[in-house]
Design a protein around this nucleic acid. Structure first.
Lengths: 245, 245
DNA sequence: CGGATGATTGAAATGACTCAAATAAAGTGG
DNA sequence: CCACTTTATTTGAGTCATTTCAATCATCCG
């Protein structure tokens, strides 16, 4: 049973910050109003569990704001984050009640939730939604595969650099400015869990990059990229970072 | 440009070994004949490259028989396998010409290929195909996330045990027999690439499991599982291996 | 101010890697 | 069918990156 509090915030889809990237991206005005009719906002505080592995879930959702994580745990307690959910990312899987990982809010999070049954009905009738959902799933698959390369082959230093570069790329700050300041949305422990490292190693690598003048911390959760080329160089990726597309 | 030889093998979809698992799984007879009209079989020998990263591909395909791998490579040559394609798995991404990894045949492989344009048209018009493709993508995403847990947190021994157990589970031998013999479809080097290890470590772990009587080799590419419970215990997974579903 | 949580740093232990050599299997051409 | 080469695999010894264990430091918040 699911006891997550519903929070009926009034927000019109027109002014939604993820309108053009989320599952609704391709919808026209009519389709949007159908989604609007079945949506409910739910809020979570930093640290709150959103969904537990194996628990039946009766909704699917888009992340509107904040950061959530997907994680898997072995019997003995070792855990690995298997996904980072940023605004516009989608949670849930049509046709399957249960998910195979835990979902946790790492910052305050707002979700735009759709009840399963009406959403699945809409999905059948609205190719624009189905196509977009497919696209999102395939993007996640690409991201998962990049992460497999990171987890399997990159050094601690490269992992940290890649992580920072990822945050930079997905944060929507001004494109032009050369020195970027960005908030770290997670603790060292959570970063370690994402990168397949220990929190001590994460801390050491941050310190090392800081000593080299590549990054700097104004506060433990606020990072400044001082030398972006050096950072990209430390990721181990090609200069272009993947496909030109 | 793509210079892969077409091989027009005559095979009716009715008798296709992957008929009920591949992208065509949900199709009725009429839909199947539409797919049949645009399909072409292509064969590859063990070791052949099937697709290169970044190269434009004008077809999508299902694996009919054999094993292929997806792999990514860092600038300095370190490579990580990011997927294993077994019969019924799908290659390619509607709406995108390029793929972000190399695809290689590790055994002799037969693909059932669909030319991009007509396939994408069919996809728009045939919900049964779109739905199945979505399901396959989501299954791959689940598999990718399981693999992230393996790459990030498991020991060499656990990785090897998990790999053997995966092969056992996806090989369609008799369900009842307690001692299973299965062919390893890849070299030690390829296994290492899949598991984020070196080939020496792979060899050592095989030797170790063999010494303990968990597995045995009749030949270097043919493995026998002598003690399945012990093997499963060595994977680090829960007894049920995941969701009961 | 004090207690709790999160982060950093140090020292030691270790699992997997690297380098190197030995062995086994698989072709190849005479 | 047999030397000979090539390739795949196993095994050993030493090294190193990351982990583990432990202590200190910083920050937040009542």
């Amino acid at each position: 049973m699911n006891t997550i509090p519903k929070l009926k915030t009034e927000m019109r889809c027109d002014s939604c910050p993820i309108r053009h990237r989320a599952v609704c991206a391709r919808c026209d005005a009519d389709e949007l109003s159908l989604l609007d009719a079945i949506k409910t906002y739910r809020s979570f505080s930093a640290g709150d569990p959103i969904l537990w592995r194996g628990e039946p879930v009766e909704f699917l959702a888009s992340v509107v704001s904040g950061v959530a994580t997907l994680s898997k745990t072995l019997e003995d307690g070792r855990t690995q984050m298997v996904g980072l959910l940023l605004p516009s990312d989608f949670i849930g899987r049509p046709g399957r009640m249960e998910i195979a990982f835990d979902v946790t809010a790492t910052t305050d999070v707002v979700l735009c939730c759709f009840d399963r049954k009406p959403f699945e009905k809409l999905l059948m009738e609205t190719p624009h939604i189905a196509q977009r959902l497919m696209e999102l799933a395939l993007d996640e698959l690409d991201a998962a595969r990049d992460w497999m390369l990171l987890l399997g082959r990159k050094t601690a230093r490269e992992k940290i650099a890649t992580f920072i570069e990822l945050l930079e790329r997905r944060s929507n700050s001004d494109a032009a400015q050369r020195i970027r300041t960005l908030p770290l949305p997670m603790t060292r422990d959570q970063i370690a869990s994402y990168l397949g490292l220990t929190l001590e190693t994460v801390s050491r690598q941050f310190s090392s990059l800081k000593k080299e003048g590549v990054i700097n911390f104004s506060d433990r959760r606020t990072l400044t990229i001082c030398d972006l080329p050096a950072l990209q160089d430390a990721t181990g990726n090609d200069a272009d970072g993947g496909l030109p597309a």
